[in-house]
Amino acid sequence: MKPEKLLSFSTHHLLLLLLLSFSYFCTRFSSGSTDTITSTTSIKDPATIVSKANSFQLGFFSPANSTNRHVGIWFNNQISPQTIVWVANRDNPLTDSSGIFTISEDGNLVVLDGNHNLLWSTNVSSSATNVSARILDSGNLVLEDSASKMVIWQSFKNPCDVFLASMEFMTNTRTNEKIQLTSWNNPSDPSMGSFSLGLHVLHNIPEGVVWNGQKTYWRSGPWNGQIFIGIPNMDSTYLSGYTLDIDDQTYYLSATFNEDENFGYCL
């Protein structure tokens, strides 16, 4: 074989390898090019993914005045300040930028450090053999069966300190299972703080309660079918209204906001 043909052969293969490597890099670590994580893709700090209509972004961030790194969700295209609406590894931050957010072999979403030590996991069991995770335009991160789209786990049922449209508070008076908000420890530390907000049911009458540890800090007053009577002007201030549903000792409280607004409540 002539030297120039050998050079041409090698160059073509080199270009092919470079293209394949670039394609793999873009698929695995691109910023904002997709809304989905699969078993063969992941997010490596500082890459992100963005919901389909560009409403929310998911990736690694550092809180104000901190160099720690967390996986979180925030409003996309927000100039300042960055509003974090959910945090994965809130109690176990990374101290460098080596983090990876991926789907493990057992089908869970996990946060790993550069040495592949486990920092956080969705920690659910499922018979699904092919799972993926998507960030939705509601701000909800869902882990689902890729074939049936059945939701296995979702961030809306594991919230932090922000209540978004389409979320709901929940309490089961029989099992004491709850969906409630928990404050950050401070603006630089998203670990679980002292305050929590949720539903409390007494004699089948629900009310909103803020707890400071185990002590009641604030009450909304009982629900009268339309509003919490202890909140002044609630019927005129919250025009979209609240809905409370009861299903077999389980109480669900949801709120409707304007669909064209990124809006929520922060504890």
Rank of each mutant, 00 (worst) to 15 (best):
S42P: 03
T40R: 15
S42C: 10
I37N: 11
F61Y: 05
T40A: 13
I37G: 11
F61E: 00
Q78E: 14
L58I: 02
F56C: 07
F61L: 10
F29D: 06
P63Y: 05
T36Q: 09
A47L: 11
K52D: 15
G72D: 05
P46F: 15
I73H: 02
N77K: 13
S66W: 04
G32N: 05
D45N: 14
K52Y: 12
T34R: 13
Q57D: 08
I37H: 08
T38R: 03
W74L: 06
S30Y: 08
I43H: 02
F56N: 02
S30T: 01
T67A: 09
D35S: 11
N76P: 13
I37K: 11
V71G: 00
S51L: 09
N65S: 15
Q57Y: 05
A53Q: 14
S62A: 11
I49K: 06
I43V: 13
Q57H: 07
N77A: 13
K52I: 10
S62Y: 13
F60P: 00
T67P: 06
D35K: 11
F29V: 12
D45G: 09
I43E: 03
S30D: 03
N76L: 10
V71Q: 00
F75G: 00
V50A: 05
T34L: 10
A64N: 14
R28S: 09
V50D: 05
T48G: 01
T48N: 02
F75W: 07
F56A: 07
R69S: 11
F75N: 01
N65K: 15
S66N: 02
D35M: 09
W74I: 04
T38C: 04
